[in-house]
Design a protein around this nucleic acid. Structure first.
Lengths: 201, 201
DNA sequence: ACGCGCATGTAACTGGTTACATGATTGC
DNA sequence: GCAATCATGTAACCAGTTACATGCGCGT
């Protein structure tokens, strides 16, 4: 997704500085897109040159001027046509799952730590990004949630909840299977536990 | 995730050409990582130079030679340490969800089409990438599934199923709310003066 | 005194993709 | 005859991030 489109999108929730836009994206969309200053500022310059946003220098006491950007009617049109032209992809890039696929090559502690860390990550998303937002009912810039945002939040909640439940339920199985496979391939020399296990099969 | 690590990983399932590696990644990991020739071939050159893979030119009748790459013990060590050093991230980048967040700005047909398309996408993943793989029990290069792969496949199945169920259940609500909101804001269509005023604050 | 929040910007880097060049074989 | 599969590679391009440069005010 083009940063310009995203920028126009958040500007529909009110006029903002580049700094605000980044905060806004971080607070509301960090789990599905990203935007850094290095992309936002050039995007704003671009949009301003095209007349899709206006810039207003606001003098501040005790601080340098800030530039407040607002979307124009032309910008709004562009936003809509950009959004309509956006193919609705949804990609996952997961080092975690790749790690799991190669779990049989790794120390148990690493696998365990990876599962802990992803679990914590999801808990954080659920609590901080989803439930907090649903509870207060406010989106970008203190604006009320749109139906689409409620839909997206609900989507996130069900998916993250399902993912969390899955790993809680299957972590033990994975670790046990991993241990069994390791035993079968690599039986420990003293007290041949593996032989005992094989006999018990 | 570094393409080199991924490459070493798939090579644990047997010696392969660069071409094979790409196919292998596409068939088994396309939903969580990506790798193109433009990254695989340089990666192989790199790994060969470091002694982490060996290259064997295989003469073929009726075809030019092919280079078969195999992982070395040193490569295996490197793979493990790379994997251990990999932080287990899991990121979603979703144009679809952003689109949903701005659904109130879009024609209903666009929103509808986006939901259809993502639904079809998930169905395809579920059927072609997950269930097919679980059913035949085979992973990269015809190798049996490792415990971690079964875990990852199960994860994918539950998450995709949950996502699919969510949109089936909530699509109607979203569309209805969108229509209501449109009616409330825009009974007699004129330019959105209110929004412009808000922006000008 | 130090770091954080506010605020704007740029330059270098990066990790990749796209598209191309090349070419034979097999199947429709 | 055309597309697809096999097979290797390179160069140009791209959208983004990281890190830096700059600087004031506020709280601790």
């Amino acid at each position: 997704m083009d940063v310009r489109t995203l920028t126009l999108g958040v500007l529909t929730h009110g006029a903002m500085t580049g700094y605000d836009i980044k905060k806004c994206v971080e607070e509301n969309f960090r789990d599905v897109v990203s935007a850094s200053y290095g992309s936002i500022y050039p995007a704003l310059a671009d949009l301003a040159a095209a007349g899709h946003v206006t810039v207003t220098s606001v003098e501040q006491e005790k601080r340098p001027d800030k530039k407040v950007y607002a979307i124009t009617p032309a910008g709004h049109e562009r936003l809509v046509s950009d959004l309509v032209a956006t193919e609705p992809r949804h990609r996952v890039r997961s080092e975690f799952l790749v790690l799991m696929c190669f779990a049989h090559l790794l120390p148990t502690a690493t696998v365990d730590a990876a599962i802990d860390s992803i679990s914590a990550y999801w808990r954080r998303i659920l609590e901080e990004d989803i439930e907090a937002c649903e509870a207060e009912g406010l989106g970008p810039n203190g604006t009320p949630l749109t139906p689409g945002m409620r839909f997206a939040l609900g989507y996130g909640r069900t998916v993250v909840t399902a993912a969390q439940a899955y790993i809680v339920r299957h972590r033990g199985t994975l670790l046990r299977e991993l241990a069994e496979a390791a035993n079968a391939t690599n039986p420990m020399p003293s007290h041949d536990q593996a032989a005992h296990d094989r006999a018990a099969e």
